[in-house]
Nucleic acid binder design. Structure first.
Length: 322
DNA sequence: AAGACGAAAGTGGTTGA
DNA sequence: TCAACAACTTTCGTCTT
């Protein structure tokens, strides 16, 4: 399975933009890279996405290998995806009559019956394919925006296939299901992303995403370990540019907190944030509650509350922290 | 002036009748 | 289906560095 890689030749689609120089708000670099496969403009200096949702002027089809890519070219107007079969299919009537209204002979009738059966089958199959194609490109877009590594994308794709087979996508938006599978895949691989983060990157609100996610768990009978605050800290720490000793200390704090039952029923994000806060003070790399709350996507108040609990229950004296 | 703290009211989700 | 409930958020005033 080589579906996430090699979609198109990157050399064709990424070009250094020479006109309209824009300075990156993060690093000030003026080198802007246009990535038309994702519809994004990315800072060449630090990789910050400067704008997204650009109109893709490239081909609407996807190719899974370079050979296929070379083979697929055509002239004329693009085929429409809004019409499910591009308006090209023949429909076999359900009445057993010919064009003049006469009844069909028994042999003819069984032949037509067989044709009809296969037509329906093939239509179902291709509608699934189209859904999948759309979903996969959305998955590609979402995961590159979130910086999700290949193996986790693959897992998400697999989950999505399963959910299509179980007809979970029906009546729900493809985007929402894709986001849900991605979120689930991250958690299965112990690299959880906050729900808000995923919701922000897709155009799905948090509530819908949560519903789809829960549906996914129930219907596919996936067992996902409770998200562990420890899984968050390496990401948060790097976002806050904290050193590895701080990370180690954070893990320590979280483990001790769990041992005394401080973590049950608490938001793992808040716990991770508070533990980082404590560790950052202990090792003199202090970050403000606000900064930490921001990357963990919780409020300062929550950081504070968890922080107080940790300090109290673990017997850490805040005065001697520095 | 920025950061930390705490109180109070509000929010969305879960649970149990 | 509804109310009670726990956890978290929002908001805002006060204290500390």
């Amino acid at each position: 399975m080589d579906q996430t890689r090699g979609t198109t030749d990157r050399k064709d689609t990424i070009s250094e933009s020479t006109k309209e120089p824009i300075a990156c708000s993060e690093c000030g670099s003026t080198s802007v890279v246009e990535d038309t496969t994702r519809g994004e403009r990315v800072c060449g200096g630090c990789g910050l996405v400067l704008s997204d949702h650009r109109i893709d002027t490239g081909a609407e089809w996807r190719a899974f290998s370079t050979e296929e890519n070379d083979a697929r070219s055509r002239v004329g107007a693009p085929t429409r995806y809004t019409v499910h079969d591009k308006g090209l299919s023949t429909v076999i009537d359900w009445r057993d009559r010919d064009t003049s209204g006469k009844k069909l002979s028994p042999t003819r009738r069984s032949e037509i019956y067989r044709l009809r059966k296969w037509q329906i089958r093939s239509r179902v199959h291709s509608s699934m394919d189209r859904n999948l194609a759309q979903a996969m490109s959305e998955l590609e877009r979402l995961s590159s925006q979130l910086g999700i590594p290949g193996p986790i994308r693959e897992l998400a794709a697999l989950l999505y296939r399963k959910s299509i087979i179980q007809k979970l996508v029906r009546g729900r938006s493809i985007e929402a299901m894709v986001a849900a599978t991605l979120y689930a895949a991250c958690r299965i691989r112990m690299k959880p992303r906050p729900l808000d983060e995923v919701a922000d990157a897709s155009r799905v609100d948090k509530k819908k995403l949560g519903q789809c996610y829960r549906l996914l768990l129930r219907s596919l009978a996936i067992k996902i370990p409770l998200s562990n605050p420890i899984d968050y800290i390496s990401r948060f720490a790097s976002q806050l540019s904290l050193s590895s000793p701080v990370q180690l200390r954070t893990v320590e704090i979280l483990q001790r907190s769990r041992d005394i039952g401080l973590t049950i029923g608490r938001d793992p994000l808040g716990l991770a944030a508070a533990a980082i806060y404590v560790a950052s003070i202990m090792l003199d790399e202090r970050r403000t509650q606000r900064e930490i709350a921001e990357v963990a996507r919780v409020t300062e108040v929550t950081v504070r509350n968890r922080y107080k609990e940790i300090v109290k229950k673990l017997g850490i004296d805040p005065m001697t922290l520095g």
